[in-house]
Amino acid sequence: MTLSAPSTPEKDRLTALAASRYRNGQKLSASWNEALDAILSHRSVRSYLPQSVPDNIIEIAVAAGQSAPTSSNLQAWSVIAVEDKDLQDRLNAVAGNQRQITEAPLLLVWLADLARSRGIATEKGRTADGLDYLESFLLGVIDAALAAQNAVVALESLGFGTCYIGAIRNDPEAVSRELGLPDGVFAVFGLTVGYPDPARPADVKPRLSQQAVLHRNRYDPTAHRAALVDYNHALGSFQREQAMPPADWTEQVSSRIGTETALKGRHVLKGVIRKLGFTLK
Rank of each mutant, 00 (worst) to 15 (best):
S4I: 01
P6T: 09
S7A: 12
L17R: 07
L17M: 10
Y22A: 08
R23H: 13
G25L: 04
Q26D: 05
Q26S: 09
K27N: 07
S29C: 02
S31P: 05
A35T: 15
L36T: 11
L36A: 11
L40H: 08
H42S: 07
H42T: 08
S44I: 11
Y48N: 08
L49G: 03
N56F: 12
I60C: 02
I60P: 00
V62P: 01
A63Q: 13
T70F: 09
T70I: 06
S72Y: 09
S72P: 00
A76P: 00
S78P: 07
I80S: 02
K85A: 07
K85Y: 01
D86M: 03
Q88M: 14
Q88I: 07
R90W: 00
A93S: 08
N97L: 05
R99I: 11
Q100G: 01
Q100P: 01
E103H: 04
E103R: 05
V109I: 15
L114W: 02
L114C: 03
R116W: 09
I120E: 10
E123I: 08
E123C: 06
K124Q: 15
R126H: 05
D129K: 11
G130W: 13
L131C: 04
Y133P: 07
L134M: 10
E135R: 10
S136D: 14
G140C: 03
V141L: 12
D143T: 01
D143R: 01
D143V: 00
A148P: 14
Q149T: 14
V153F: 03
V153C: 11
E156T: 14
E156Q: 15
S157G: 09
G159R: 02
F160G: 08
I165R: 06
G166L: 09
R169D: 02
A174S: 12
G184C: 06
V188N: 01
T192D: 04
V193S: 06
G194I: 06
P196C: 04
Q211V: 14
A212P: 03
V213W: 05
R216M: 13
N217P: 00
R218F: 10
Y219L: 13
Y219Q: 08
D220K: 12
A223D: 09
H224T: 07
Y231E: 04
A234G: 09
A234R: 13
A234L: 11
L235Q: 06
G236H: 09
S237Q: 15
S237K: 15
S237C: 08
Q239P: 07
R240I: 12
R240C: 01
Q242R: 12
A243P: 01
M244K: 13
P246R: 05
P246E: 14
D248P: 07
E251C: 03
E260G: 02
A262E: 13
K270T: 11
K270W: 02
I273C: 04
K275T: 06
L276T: 03
G277Q: 05
